[in-house]
Amino acid sequence: MSKAMEATVSKKSLRDNPLVWPLAGLALVVAFNLVTGPEFFSVSVRDGHLYGNLVDIFSQGARVMLLALGMTLVIATGGVDLSVGAVMAIGGALCATLVTQLGYGLYLALPLTLLMAGALGFFNGAMVVAGRIQPIIATLILMVAGRGVALLITDSDVVKIQDPAFLYLGKGYILGVPFSLWLVAAVFTVMALLIRKTALGLLIEAVGDNEHASRFSGIEAGRLKLIVYAVCGALAGMAGVLDAASVSAADPMRVGELKELDAIFAVVIGGTALTGGRFLLFGSILGAILLQALTLTLYNAGVPAAVAPVPKAIVIVGVCLLQSDRFRKQISNIIKIGGKAS
């Protein structure tokens, strides 16, 4: 009796664990590749570093992972940040201009860039908190204007990067693993520690669940939101720097286009609800991995570019639907009824 109960409890908690569904999506992608082309998984060592599709998923997905980490916090407070793509463009453009045209060292240019990107995020937060503007509108402003700012910084040109330290950010390897991956791991660890080992995570969730109630219980919701948007901005700036470093050029026009949507996708697939409240940093990382794995799989399967968004959308919709309790209940009801009828 008690064993049976235990079993149902663990089954229930497994199904309710939001990480299960992105993992299921990932398993689907892996299974597909195992069937169509197992060489997808081959990883070899070339020029002293790891080389293969699995490495690419992480190195190419690193930018979206950074965006998604910041976005998770913003979404957890019940907001959203549409400007991350534009802030990416500003970050890349600013850092590249500081290094290549004004001759700053990276040790100075990078912190300045992150500070600037953080300030832009802070500006978003200020509009939301002090201006009482809905987050989607407040950040839309910077999404539109940000690209113009990036163009101003670079004088409407593409800035080429030759500084070896800068390029290392996008192309370097530590112990055979891409630098960008170490960076994501470091950011994730720091964030996870801050959030789960202190009360910060709890406070953010409280604000997202019910801002009024959290304020009455003594949480400074406004200040918390400002911090969260600033962090999101700074991470977007870093993603822009990575993007610029990986192609040796900062293009203010095209970098980060539609990346805000990828970031929101990753967060939602990862089990964080857009309504705010409970959030999962690791889920967002999984979401970003799933997105990138899907993209690479479609390349590998030779799906024509014009059609590629369709299978991608099907997997994403599937994962999102499965995350909804209500949808799962309806499905299980249908199955039950079917079972009884037969």
Partner: peptide, 23 residues
């Protein structure tokens, strides 16, 4: 042998080429 879109974008061109080189 292969025709895929990289949206006229530099970083997409790099990402796509990385995959195609492995394929």
């Amino acid at each position: 042998i292969e025709s895929q879109s990289a949206n006229f974008r530099r970083s997409d061109g790099k990402d796509l080429m990385e995959s195609l080189l492995k394929l």
